[in-house]
């Protein structure tokens, strides 16, 4: 029964990883840039929410209504100030520039807020500890369920937006070929600004979830970037639903590892990530693609 519980909790934890990975995956999908400042931006969002709550004395859920537009603005500034310029500089420059931004953000947050760890757990009432008992040994945390549902809603909403809306079509066109998109009357620069603003709002939601389900401090960004990246790679780069699967696999791996030995929680997550990398080497389609090709090559009956 303990294993069923651990796997269930792992799936729920995967919801958080999918949430933190969504912005990274989306930005990569649109601009082919891996944003090394992703984790630091999520921590920035959490601190923004902290400041808003502190000043106005409102619930973090109401505070989100102010924090998310602020993050969209951060996205516009980030796109115009850093990404747009670095995109012209080849493969290395976006990595170096975004890594510099993460160094800058982490240390500015440290200078402003110090090393204390913060959390919204005491600001969200019973939600931080409330749970539903499924049976004697399985409880589902209400907050974890909410975060999982948010991840589902966010990924589903993004899917609808990208496939059904005018903006979604423009974003996809720009992602596939910006020059061709420009020929058909799209301004790729503006589309990328819109995409960056959307990505930073996703990062904002993830930052809020981080602060509610656990704690954060100015240097917490690196670990969040690593989790997000692992979820994206495990699930297959560039696919939104793959990101959810990747997050769930990562969550299960960490929880199962922790059940075997508390030291193994992080380690087993990283090992699963590396295993996926090694399996992916077997071909573009990964292990499953390889298997499928083998089956096709061997006909059922001799000819």
């Amino acid at each position: 029964m303990i294993w069923i519980n651990q796997i269930l909790q792992g799936i729920l934890l995967g919801g958080y990883y999918a949430l933190i990975a969504a912005g990274l995956s989306f930005l990569f999908g649109v601009m082919r840039v891996i944003n090394l400042a992703h984790g630091s931006l999520a921590v920035l969002a959490a601190f923004l929410l902290l400041v808003i709550d502190h000043w106005l004395g409102i619930s973090p859920f109401v505070g989100l209504l102010l924090m998310l537009p602020a993050m969209a603005l951060v996205g516009v500034v980030f796109q115009l100030g850093v990404l747009e310029r670095s995109l012209r500089g080849g493969v290395l420059i976006p990595l170096l520039a975004t890594f510099g931004v993460s160094l800058l953000l982490d240390n500015i947050l440290f200078a402003l807020f110090g090393a204390n760890t913060r959390s919204f757990a005491s600001h969200i009432g019973t939600l931080s500890y409330g749970s539903w008992a499924i049976n004697r040994s399985i409880d589902i945390s209400q907050l974890d369920a909410l975060i999982f549902a948010t991840a589902l809603g966010l990924l589903g909403g993004m899917h609808l937006l990208l496939t059904r809306s005018q903006l979604g079509r423009m974003i996809r066109a720009t992602a596939i070929d910006a020059d061709a998109a420009a020929l058909s009357g799209i301004d790729p620069r503006r589309v990328r600004v819109a995409a960056a603003a959307m990505a930073m709002m996703m990062v904002g939601i993830a930052g809020a979830a981080l602060g509610m389900r656990s704690s954060f401090e100015p240097y917490a960004g690196g670990a969040q970037l690593i989790y997000a990246f692992e979820a994206v790679v495990i699930g297959g780069t560039g696919s939104l639903w793959g990101t959810l699967i990747g997050g769930i696999v990562l969550g299960i791996a960490q929880n199962v590892g922790a059940t075997i030995n508390p030291h193994l929680s992080q380690i087993s997550g990283h090992v699963v990530f590396l295993l996926v990398l090694v399996l992916r080497m077997r071909g573009a389609g990964g292990l499953l693609g390889d298997l499928r090709r083998k089956i096709r090559r061997q006909p059922m009956a001799p000819t």
Partner: peptide, 14 residues
């Protein structure tokens, strides 16, 4: 590119 960059960070953490 970026996959290698963060992948190496994961390896260092592990």
């Amino acid at each position: 590119g970026g996959e290698f960059a963060i992948g190496m960070w994961v390896l260092a953490t592990l």
